[in-house]
Design a protein around this nucleic acid. Structure first.
Lengths: 212, 212
DNA sequence: GTCTATATAGCGATAGAC
DNA sequence: GTCTATCGCTATATAGAC
């Protein structure tokens, strides 16, 4: 009888609870920042007591690190260029830039919590966010600027430092996402679909560096 | 004798101290966020006791509001287009975009604390930051997109929604500043003068929307 | 695995002397 | 205008029962 009841309580398996806590903490951290979120709030949102948190994570910092760790290992981060490789070979300039921007915009929209979390981390100078950026962003820079350099050799793009172009291009869609998430949530300033935004950004940058 | 000594102590005039506290608080808030900065730290950095803070500001929130208020009333915010007006009249497209970008980049560099503070505020959802943005950013959008529209009517720029162009352009230099302040402080990814960056950004966007 | 109860520490803010 | 001392509160983290 006792045994039966035990299986019907709200008790969770260790890993399941750990993951749930991570998810909830991530949402709250992204909303109010690390210091702005209390362990009490996290516990309450998860429907458990504070003590449970400290059974799973030795302290608040470890909970935070655990979140970033999980994210850094996600498939999207592992290979962000999977569906662009083919366009690169075909030298489909518009396809490359358009897809890059669209994928980023869609990711940001679907996972705005993570974007906010990264911003918080960067502002607070957290090490793990730094590592993440160095790994992920540096790869994107190398990848895109390599492509631009190749197309310059082909005589299609004019002679500009490719990294400046990459920064300008990334700036367009990152800033657009930031606007949508932080300041212009109701999109009073500019309402536009991700597809249309990606198309315009790609067009501007390509016309902007093309030989005429 | 007593009187003489009193004038040689470190005591400050009311307004002077108030301003000093604002400055120090802004630096600390920008580094660690509002919640991440204690009144004790502010007091210590200013070389006074906590009580002094609460003599000048009725609470921590008021200190914060006071900082944003000061900034919002600065001459730069009041009229951000002063030295562009003449270029607008001359229809000096490059001058308009170049100067806009360069001024922003220089401001961001000189006042990176403020940029960080705005980010923190936006993330924490602080009302005053919201008001600031609505006033300042909206004006820039209206101003620049108005100019673009005019140049479209002149037949110089192709037919694009001006607000998207504005977003793309602002994105370039805001993202560039953010990179320099947050992630790429040593400029490993891209080292470039503000002048050169502004020139490239202006060139890309102008070539990107010009009729060919 | 979860709870209640509690230890410990640090926060914002105030009182009152000088 | 500034200080020391302190209050009330809330935060993280732990102990021990179930």
């Amino acid at each position: 009888m006792d045994k039966f009841f035990e299986t019907t309580t709200t008790r969770m398996a260790g890993d399941e609870r750990r993951e749930q806590l991570c998810k909830i903490a991530m949402r709250l951290f992204s909303e109010r920042g690390f210091r702005g979120t209390t362990t009490k709030e996290i516990a309450h949102a998860a429907g458990v007591s504070e003590a449970v948190i400290f059974k799973h994570f030795s302290n608040k910092d470890e909970l935070y690190a655990s979140i970033l760790d999980n994210k850094a290992c996600s498939p999207q981060m592992a290979d962000p260029f999977s569906d662009i490789a083919e366009m690169i070979e075909r030298k489909d300039d518009f396809g490359v830039f358009y897809t890059m921007a669209l994928k980023a915009l869609n990711n940001h929209k679907a996972d705005s919590d993570f974007l906010r979390l990264m911003l918080h981390s960067a502002l607070e100078g957290h090490d793990l966010a730094k590592v993440f950026f160095e790994n992920f962003i540096t790869r994107i820079y190398n990848f895109l600027s390599g492509y631009i350099r190749q197309r310059q050799e082909d005589g299609v793009f004019r002679d500009v430092e490719p990294r400046i172009v990459v920064r300008a291009f990334i700036g367009m869609f990152v800033h657009h996402s930031l606007n949508n998430i932080l300041w212009d949530k109701e999109q009073k300033l500019l309402k536009i679909s991700n597809e249309e935004a990606a198309r315009e950004f790609a067009t501007i940058v390509l016309e902007g560096i093309r030989k005429h």
